[in-house]
Amino acid sequence: MKTSDCDILIVPGHENSGADHWQSRWERQLSTARRIEQESWDEPTKDAWIGRIVQDVARARLPVVLVGHSLGVVAIAHAAPLLAPGKVQGAFLVGLPDVERPDFMPAIDRAFAPIPRDPLPFPSVLVASRTDPHCDYAKAEDVAYSWGAAIVDAGDAGHINTDSGHGPWPEGLMRFAGFLKRL
């Protein structure tokens, strides 16, 4: 699949993705990419976030590929069983936060717990870092297996966001292109 063959829906996490974040850069670079806008980025509510994902997927004209980061990954997993069968062709998921961890901050994200464990109804890949402060690699790997997602070891990459030096993230874009080719 080529980017022109699908609607690429970008699903940021808590507090959105700033202008230098790789998701924002991809949104500007890829002609069919657009962000799923949430009513509140600072005080996310699970039902509202899931509802917006379901709504935007239903409105898409082309087959959909979801690109989630952080809390957006968990929101996609919650929304998956509510999406029209066959509408989503795949999901590229990055930086799963462990919202089940008792010490996880911010506390508002814990409303997204537990992390769904049912297999996702579309092909997916989860990119995880060995040094993500929001999720241990072993937990990300376990969740990926339960979802039926391919796990990608990003090595020492922090939360794979601007703070960890992943603004442009060309390796991620190449990995995304490879994922699209397999769809």
Rank of each mutant, 00 (worst) to 15 (best):
S24Q: 05
R25T: 12
W26S: 09
E27A: 11
L30E: 13
L30W: 15
S31F: 07
T32Q: 14
R34P: 10
R34H: 11
R35C: 08
R35Y: 05
I36L: 04
E39S: 12
E39V: 10
W41P: 03
D42I: 04
P44E: 09
P44G: 09
T45N: 08
T45R: 14
K46G: 01
K46A: 02
K46S: 03
A48V: 14
R52H: 06
R52E: 14
I53G: 03
V54M: 06
D56C: 02
D56G: 01
V57P: 02
A58M: 00
R59Y: 00
R61V: 14
R61Q: 15
R61K: 15
L62H: 14
V65A: 02
L66V: 07
V67D: 00
V67W: 05
H69N: 13
H69E: 11
L71G: 05
L71D: 08
V73W: 09
A75T: 15
A75R: 01
A77I: 07
A77S: 14
H78C: 01
H78W: 11
A79T: 05
P81I: 01
V88E: 12
A91E: 12
L93C: 07
L93R: 00
V94M: 09
G95T: 10
L96D: 02
D98S: 04
V99A: 08
V99Y: 07
V99N: 10
E100A: 01
R101Y: 08
P102R: 13
F104W: 06
M105A: 13
I108D: 08
R110I: 04
A111H: 11
A111P: 02
F112W: 03
A113R: 03
P114I: 06
I115Q: 03
P123L: 00
V125H: 01
R130H: 08
R130P: 08
T131E: 09
D132Q: 02
P133G: 11
H134C: 12
C135F: 00
K139V: 15
K139L: 11
E141N: 11
E141R: 13
A144G: 06
S146A: 14
W147I: 04
G148N: 08
I151M: 13
D153L: 06
